[in-house]
Design a protein around this nucleic acid. Structure first.
Lengths: 141, 141
DNA sequence: TGAAAAAATTAGACTAAATCTAATATGACA
DNA sequence: TGTCATATTAGATTTAGTCTAATTTTTTCA
């Protein structure tokens, strides 16, 4: 189950699976937003293991170094993080500033396939600087 | 000349062309990196007009609001800015974290044209999350 | 085992970026 | 010129993040 998987991936990366470290990972895995370090700190401390600010920041640093967590650049003042399970790129919309995940395709697809068509549509949005939510409404700008 | 153009664009946006405001704009126009607010503050104060920290931040805020300057999201702790002359999107490389400007195309081009080809190539890089500098070296990852 | 060493955690001090505040200066215009 | 809105200022405050030195936990290995 999940718990074992987290423990495993920590150890595969040469990190001990401490309660505090585990809690950070678990929270990041179940969260689909991109929480700030402060939010993670708060969430982890809402229930058990208790983790000081320093430990939370240290663990985030270690997890990023190990490649298990990615630091995401966003519009705003504080760095945000997300669990790096699937490969995706972070796209920031020009208009609303939201971060949108874009799948990472290992191999370019021909434009004739349906995946190829989807990719092309996404490309179009990227070059307009608009996320999928903003694009339809401003197609003509 | 430049000075007049800046004055004009400030006034077109309903902003008075104060010495401090002008200095920020002028510095951003001539700079091709994406300086931080602190760097802008320092640069503006190296020579004349003198601008307090609060004013520099206020002016940056106003310029962004007016659409003359854009706040750029980067990997790191402090927000960065650039003059928004040409429309381009900011792409952050997965590997090196650098910000790369990507032109903003108003209209999608057919893949048969040479511009179309270039766009497709750029799309490919984006979906790999790599900037042009990193992509060739890691094409096979 | 259990003593010594290594790794992790902690509270709280510190730093730096950005914002806020309240006082003062400047420019627009009747 | 006098009045009013706008802009600027110094410096205090807030907030995210880092650092430090002491303590706790885990590992190692005699």
């Amino acid at each position: 189950m999940q718990a074992e998987a987290i423990k495993q991936s920590l150890e595969d990366s040469g990190l001990r699976c401490t309660p505090q470290r585990y809690a950070v990972m678990a929270f990041l895995m179940e969260s689909n937003r991109h929480p700030t370090a402060a939010e993670i700190f708060e969430a982890v401390n809402r229930m058990d293991p208790r983790s000081s600010r320093a430990t939370t920041y240290n663990n985030l640093r270690d997890l990023v170094q190990a490649g298990l967590v990615r630091e995401v650049a966003v519009e705003g003042r504080s760095a945000r993080f997300d669990a790096k399970g699937m490969r995706h790129h972070h796209f920031i919309c020009d208009r609303c500033g939201n971060v949108e995940d874009i799948e990472w395709y290992k191999v370019p697809r021909p434009a004739s396939t349906s995946l190829g068509k989807r990719i092309l549509r996404e490309c179009e949005l990227i070059f307009r600087g608009l996320c999928t939510k903003c694009a339809p409404r401003h197609a003509s700008r």
